[in-house]
Design a protein around this nucleic acid. Structure first.
Ligand SMILES: [Mn+2]
Ligand SMILES: [Mn+2]
Ligand SMILES: [Zn+2]
Ligand SMILES: [Zn+2]
Lengths: 171, 171
DNA sequence: TTCTAATTGAAAATGATTATCATTACTAGT
DNA sequence: ACTAGTAATGATAATCATTTTCAATTAGAA
């Protein structure tokens, strides 16, 4: 459950498969240790082996991961990393917008490295599959709504829930 | 914080103030004890004074309320109501779709009696003001996205976050 | 190298929600 | 109305994710 993720670009009618992968690295690009250090420094934090390892594991691992899952992965590589550090760093990265928090229902928070282009999620409630999509029309209409009420939007949460094709057939 | 709520009907450009109220009853209509009993029976639950009181308080109280807040309100009227019962009944009503759960960020879940017409929420992160809106265009585009990926949608979560007019000025 | 504030990990604390379970109260059937 | 049988209740303990504490360690500026 909750293993399949694909990333697509969807401007209303168009579906453009981009990076897209299921279990492995988040971006096509790989990050050198220097890249990792740069990112950490950019958020005004000191570079520590723990933070490098956590960030690296996050980058190489599955796209939507929980703090617990990330902690376990990191543990296998270096057991000198406490889970408080994972939580702390994850929280810090969320504040710096380096990672994005995903709270789906009442399940534990999942994290993903904030992508260059914003996307939203559609989740199958039967098998946990997550489809990422972008839809400019929806985003535009959100801005319209905000403008109507005089709000200045900072962010939003859009999650679609339903049954995916394969789960519909299994039934 | 988190006290002002207004409900509007917003089909893209149009803003039609409907029932709308801030602190008091949810619907214009008032519910008799028989109404309350009917609702409870409809969800295949037995009618008890606790459930009547909880439902009544929910109906008369603020639109988006936490389990804790509801418990405290109910307590003042009849201290023979345990908070386990409040949580349990709230959970039951959520399953029967009598109430809708609102999970905003990491704050405690808020509940509202499920309205006849679906709406989404826009929240001011400075003062907690919640604006309810309906936007058919967004809903339509959501369905389009779902269709593209073969999903059958069951529900969705759309929350807009930003700064309201008055908070923008205060700054 | 030295100094000091930042970071760390283990463990305890928190806070919302849920589960337990002995007691009580509905209500269908008499 | 009376009773049995089941559902509901509430005090309390348990969960579980996340956060905090704090003493020990470490990064990195000078
Ligand atoms: Mn994603
Ligand atoms: Mn609402
Ligand atoms: Zn599925
Ligand atoms: Zn405000």
């Amino acid at each position: 459950m909750f293993e399949h993720t694909s990333r697509h670009n969807n401007n209303d009618e168009t579906v453009l498969p981009i990076p897209s992968n299921n279990e492995t690295s988040y971006f096509d690009e790989s990050w050198t240790e220097d890249d990792l250090k740069q990112i950490i420094r950019k958020m005004n934090l000191k570079v520590t082996p723990q933070r490098i390892l956590i960030l690296q594991t996050l980058h190489e691992g599955r796209v939507h991961i929980t703090a617990q899952e990330l902690y376990e992965k990191v543990q296998k590589i270096n057991s000198d990393v406490g889970f408080a550090t994972v939580y702390r760093f994850l929280k810090g990265m969320a504040e710096s917008r380096v990672v994005t928090e995903l709270r789906m229902g009442s399940m534990p928070t999942r994290y993903e490295l904030t992508p260059k282009k914003h996307h939203d999620h559609m989740t199958c409630t039967a098998c946990g599959k997550i489809v990422e999509f972008q839809n400019k029309n929806i985003e535009d209409h959100q801005e319209k709504v905000a403008k109507q009420y005089g709000f200045k939007l900072t962010h939003h949460v859009l999650e679609l829930y339903g049954i995916c094709t394969s789960c519909q057939m299994k039934k």
